[in-house]
Design a protein around this nucleic acid. Structure first.
Length: 276
DNA sequence: GTCCCGCTTA
DNA sequence: TAAGCAGGAC
C-alpha cells in the first residue's frame, strides 16, 4: 500500500507541467480532436476500444463521412455499417453502435446524453468510454482511467512497485486533474502515456488490471471474423456456400455461426445467411 | 474470470 | 514471432 494518496500542490503543478510540456511539443493531431460534435467523438471512442490510434484514423474519417449524423447510423443496415467497419475488428462494436444509435434517436431526440448513467447503460459503452465522452465531448472534469492514463501514473507515482491497483491511481487522477481544461488535460495525458509506453516497454504490466490476451490463430475470434468478412463482401450466401468459403473445421464454423446468430450479427433469410 | 478482432511494430 | 491496443459484455 502506498501513502501517496495526498499530493502537495507544488507536486501537482510540476506533474501537470511535465504532461503539458510534452503535449505542446509532441501532441498528436487527431481528426476527432478537431470536432465538437458529440456523435463523432462517441464514434471515435468506440473505435478506439482496444484498437490503436493509427488504425482508427482512416476508418473514423470514412465512417463520419458515410454516416454524418447519428440518424444515418440508426437508419442504415448492419451490413452497411460493417462494410465501413471492415478490418477494425471486434465486430460486436459495430452492432452495439447501431443499437445505441437507434436508442438515442428514439429516446433522446437524436442527442448524445451528457450524463454518465445514461451513457454507461448504452450498448458498447462502459465506464471508460462514458467518461471519455463526458471529458472530450462535453468538457466535464470527470475522473477515469484507461491504458495510457494508467501508464502515466504508474511511471510517475509508483516507481519500484511491482503491482498497482486502479483504486490507488484514481485519487491521484482526481487530484491532478485540470478542472478548467479537462479535454486538453486528458488529451495531453494520453499522448504522454503513449510516449512513456515506448520508453519503458509497457509499464501497465505492473497493473493488477493487466492481462495477456489469448492467441488469435485458430481461435473462435478468427473464425467469427472470417464469417463476417465474407458475408460483408458477398452480401448473402447459403449455409453450404459459407461452409465452403470459411476454411476451418466444419464443426467449428457451425458453432460460431450459431453464436453469431444468437448475438444478432447474422440472420437466416430464406435459404440465405446474411448480415443481421 | 473468459471471450471478443485484426493490424502494426519490434 | 509476439506484444499490445483511448475496453465491454457476460
Amino acid at each position: 500500500m502506498t501513502r501517496l494518496s495526498l499530493l502537495k500542490p507544488a507536486h501537482i503543478r510540476k506533474f501537470q507541467k511535465t504532461v503539458y510540456d510534452y503535449h505542446r511539443k509532441y501532441g498528436r493531431i487527431l481528426p476527432w480532436r478537431k470536432t465538437a460534435d458529440p456523435y463523432k467523438i462517441l464514434v471515435s471512442e468506440v473505435m478506439l476500444q482496444q484498437t490503436q490510434v493509427s488504425r482508427v484514423i482512416d476508418r473514423y474519417q470514412q465512417f463520419v463521412n458515410t454516416f454524418p449524423t447519428i440518424k444515418f447510423v440508426a437508419s442504415s443496415s448492419l451490413h452497411e455499417i460493417l462494410f465501413v467497419w471492415k478490418g477494425l475488428g471486434y465486430n460486436r462494436r459495430a452492432h452495439s453502435l447501431k443499437r445505441l444509435a437507434e436508442i438515442i434517436v428514439t429516446e433522446y431526440n437524436s442527442r448524445i446524453p451528457s450524463d454518465f448513467e445514461l451513457l454507461v447503460n448504452l450498448p458498447g459503452i462502459g465506464k471508460a468510454t462514458a467518461n471519455a465522452i463526458l471529458a472530450f465531448a462535453f468538457k466535464k472534469p470527470v475522473v477515469f482511467i484507461e491504458t495510457n492514463i494508467r501508464t502515466v501514473y504508474i511511471v510517475h507515482f509508483f516507481d519500484g512497485r511491482k503491482s498497482v491497483d486502479d483504486n490507488e491511481i484514481y485519487p491521484l487522477v482526481a487530484q491532478s486533474l485540470d478542472m478548467q481544461k479537462p479535454k486538453e488535460w486528458y488529451s495531453a495525458l494520453m499522448d504522454y502515456g503513449v510516449f512513456l509506453k515506448k520508453k519503458f516497454s509497457n509499464p501497465s504490466r505492473k497493473s493488477t488490471h493487466y492481462k495477456k490476451q489469448s492467441p488469435f490463430k485458430g481461435s473462435n475470434r478468427q473464425v467469427r471474423g472470417k464469417i463476417i468478412r465474407i458475408l460483408v463482401e458477398e452480401g448473402r450466401l447459403t449455409e453450404k456456400q459459407l461452409l465452403e468459403r470459411v476454411t476451418f473445421r466444419e464443426e467449428m464454423v457451425r458453432t460460431n455461426m450459431k453464436k453469431l446468430k444468437g448475438e444478432g450479427l447474422i440472420i437466416k433469410k430464406g435459404k440465405y445467411i446474411i448480415i443481421g
